[in-house]
Every structure is written in C-alpha cells, then in structure tokens.
Amino acid sequence: MRELFPAKQVWGFVLSLALTAAALLVYFFNMSRATGMTIFIVTAFIQAFVQLVVFMHARETDDSKSIFATLYYAIFIALITVFGTLLCMIWGWKY
C-alpha cells in the first residue's frame, strides 16, 4: 500500500495546497494591489512548475529539452500577447 503513495507526489500535493493557501491570504487580508499581484504571480507560476516537474514528468526523457523549449516559448509568447495587448488596448490609449 505504501508504495502506491510515493513521497514525491505527496509532497507535490501538499506544496500545491500550501501555495493555494498562500494566494488566499491576499483575499483574507487587506494588502496593497502591488503586493497582492506579486503574491498571485509568484504562487501561480511556482504551482504550475510543480505540476510540470512532479506530476507531468517533464524532465524524465531525452526529449525534455524540446519539451521545455516548447513550454518556455509558449509562455514567453503568451506573456508578450497579454502585455502587448494591454499596452496598446488599455495602457497606451490616449483620449
């Protein structure tokens, strides 16, 4: 029975619960917007990374370079799209 619950997965689970709780702190305590957003960004990305490495085994084959290249590329372009769009649709708008 024990071998069905490997320590790595269990720790991953506990960690992701803890990170969710950390993000919840922003909800329960009054924080400045900058602090809140920082906590959100940090917890969300760490949690995503935990999923990738612990649960999704992204590191285990010799394709892992290709896999991580794809992921980083995707995340980078997604961020460019998000911030580029906000820049020209909202922040850089002149009335």
């Binding site: 020209c88 708008w93 002149k94």
Partner: peptide, 22 residues
C-alpha cells in the same frame, strides 16, 4: 513575428510611444 502586430492599426489612436515601440 509575434512582437509587431500593432503596426496593422497604428492609426487606432494609441499614444506616440506605443506606436514608436511597434
């Protein structure tokens, strides 16, 4: 190719600095 799309609507009324970047 993913950094430049805004040049298709330079005339949308963004500020000069956004247009300069793109």
């Amino acid at each position: 190719s993913f950094f430049v799309w805004t040049h298709h609507f330079f005339t949308m009324g963004q500020t000069a600095y956004v247009n300069s970047i793109f």
